[in-house]
Design a binder for these strands. Structure first.
Length: 563
DNA sequence: GCCGTTTTCGGCCCGACTGTTTTCAGTCG
């Protein structure tokens, strides 16, 4: 079976690691890493592109050599150059690279001098004190390695953004309140609203950076200070989240905020453009020789490029730079654009009224109440939901309740329950649950079949992912979305921060293909309506404008869409 | 190994911090 894009990318990264250990030309190393990113970001399986006879050298960072390599990988599952390198040193050396403070040079030195090839070897050598005599290693380095080895055995977690939001905002307030600080922000993936966050990248401005750093490391929530200099510090919070702070002069605020908001790929792409024009972009500003072109605000820096301002959520080098240069960035959806929630799940008829009143308080014009229909037995409970909705529609002013039914899609693409039971609802939600391990082809045809059902109005849980727990299922999403468009069916974006399914890339695809996205909270209690916020954040990462969603439509239009 | 408004060679992002060094290499982001 053909390797997945991620598996292929992993081979290229392994190649880069091994070359690096060997001391190979660092640009050659980078070439493999860049190629790995390209393959990872491909919207379709590489094996399909190859089968169609596509010219791989048109892909960014893929030249003649790597195109050949990719063909070889597709054919054999590996490639000669990699196999040769694998034979030259122990595979476990790569594990050592994961330890903070150990890069390729030191790992190779430890292997050459002491034969250290595994984490266990390293731990033993640290115990016995045999490392310190090795050139380049001193007492402090050894001590740091001791600590790092303990931590290094644990996997670096990415936290759900929603889980660390309060902590980030508290940190931001602390930073902004520090004496001597003019401006301060948490940047990084937190500011880009990624669904997960590994650390907090902070930036602040001050005329006296060193003093700010001094005060910053006194923050109550800090467990340890990893590094502290004149303009930056790295600390570990008690919660285990690492924080980087960089302090620059006030005139560099915009450039620094951009730099530390990233993403890396976005920033590198901007730097490439600067290079071509003979400019230089760094955290201090955009420069032409000694002349400062822009730096005080992000808007100013983008304007100096002749680009529209790029919202942080879009800064992933997924086409936003080209769009900004062409003045074709989307006008991203805002929380205020949302006029209703299209999937809430009250546990019983009694739970509807509190949800409805909370929805009205949020200023919604409509709310879609859905119950699950797993077997014929549920029909009675669903009837009660519908009756309660009808009663509340009489009673409530300014809020329209719609009724929906959520049906599981079986392995063959048929709904778990079918027939007249589906006809009484305003919306039939076909939910792709279970069957996560089906092959890509079978998964795809299952979805296509579900979309053929005449009552299918909304396709939910398209990838079935649970962030950090369950990988998204593999399917030809572009084909499924095209079929959804042709069937007049929308796709669901679940605001549950553990799911955020559709993922942002698929939202972007849905927009391009022309499938409306329904933002939903799946709230069963009033306070969970708040999850709509995460759905909107994620929709923005997926390039969605208000008009790309069902939720921004006025009541009359929505009513038409549901029919 | 890639790439081209410096186009088939000669560049390739770059600044901060640390530790061990005696002026800088290694690592990180």
């Amino acid at each position: 079976m053909a390797l997945t894009n991620n598996q292929i990318a992993a081979l290229l990264v392994e190649m880069a690691d091994l070359l690096e250990l060997e001391g190979a030309n660092r640009f050659r190393v980078r070439a493999y890493r860049n190629a790995a990113v390209t393959i990872e970001e491909l919207p379709r399986p590489l094996s399909e592109l190859i089968a169609e006879g596509a010219d791989l050298t048109v892909l960014p960072a893929i030249g003649e050599d790597l195109a050949e390599t990719l063909l070889e990988i597709n054919e054999t599952g590996t490639f000669t150059a990699l196999e040769e390198l694998r034979g030259s040193s122990p595979a476990t050396l790569r594990d050592l690279l994961q330890i903070p403070g150990l890069g390729p040079k030191r790992v190779q030195a430890l292997y050459d001098e002491l034969g250290i090839a595994t984490l266990d070897d390293l731990e033993a050598a640290l115990e016995s004190g045999s490392i310190e005599p090795v050139p380049g290693f001193g007492a402090k380095t050894v001590q740091k390695l001791r600590e790092a080895v303990l931590v290094g055995r644990r996997k670096k977690p990415r936290h759900l953004r929603a889980d660390v939001e309060d902590e980030a905002l508290a940190l931001e307030r602390f930073l902004q309140g520090l004496e001597g600080v003019a401006q301060g922000r948490v940047g990084g993936s937190f500011r880009r609203k990624r669904e997960t966050v590994a650390d907090f990248d902070c930036v602040a401005t001050s005329d006296r950076p060193a003093e700010v750093i001094e005060r910053f490391v006194e923050y109550d929530e800090i467990q340890s200070v990893v590094a502290q200099g004149e303009t930056r510090a790295t600390v570990l919070l008690k919660s285990g989240i690492p924080v980087d702070l960089r302090v620059v002069a006030p005139e560099s605020w915009g450039a620094a905020l951009m730099y530390f908001t990233g993403s890396r790929a976005h920033q590198l792409a901007l730097r490439d453009i600067a290079l071509v024009r003979g400019w230089k972009l760094n955290e201090y500003g955009l420069f032409a020789g000694d002349e400062r072109l822009a730096s005080a605000t992000e808007e100013e820096v983008y304007a100096a490029y002749g680009m529209a301002y790029v919202p942080p959520e879009l800064r992933e080098n997924r086409g936003e730079i080209e769009a900004a240069r062409a003045g074709a960035l989307p006008e991203l959806i805002k929380p205020d654009d949302v006029r209703g929630d299209l999937h809430v799940t009250p546990g019983s008829a009694d739970a509807i009224e509190p949800l409805a009143r909370a929805a009205a308080e949020r200023g919604y014009d409509y709310l879609l109440i859905a119950g699950r229909l797993a077997s014929k037995r549920d029909a009675g409970a669903l009837r009660k939901l519908a009756e309660e909705c009808a009663r509340l529609n009489e009673e409530l002013d300014g809020l329209a309740l719609f009724t929906g039914v959520e049906v599981e899609v079986l392995e063959d693409g048929a709904p778990a329950v079918d027939g007249d039971d589906l006809d009484r609802f305003d919306l039939v939600i076909m939910s792709l649950e279970n069957n996560y391990e089906l092959s890509r082809d079978r998964q795809t045809s299952r979805m296509l079949r579900a979309l053929e059902h005449p009552r299918c109005g909304l396709l939910a849980r398209l990838t079935g992912r649970i962030i950090n727990e369950r990988d998204p299922r593999d399917a030809d999403v572009a084909r499924v979305l095209e079929a959804a468009r042709d069937a007049g069916c929308a796709v669901e974006l679940d605001g549950d921060p553990r799911r955020l399914d559709l993922p942002d890339r698929h939202c972007q695809l849905a927009r391009e293909i022309g499938v409306p996205v329904a933002l939903v909270s799946r709230a069963s209690r009033p306070e969970e309506l708040e999850r709509m916020r995460y759905a909107v954040d994620h929709a923005r990462r997926g390039w969605l404008e208000a008009g790309d969603t069902l939720n921004a439509r006025p009541l009359a239009e929505l009513r038409k869409a549901l029919r």
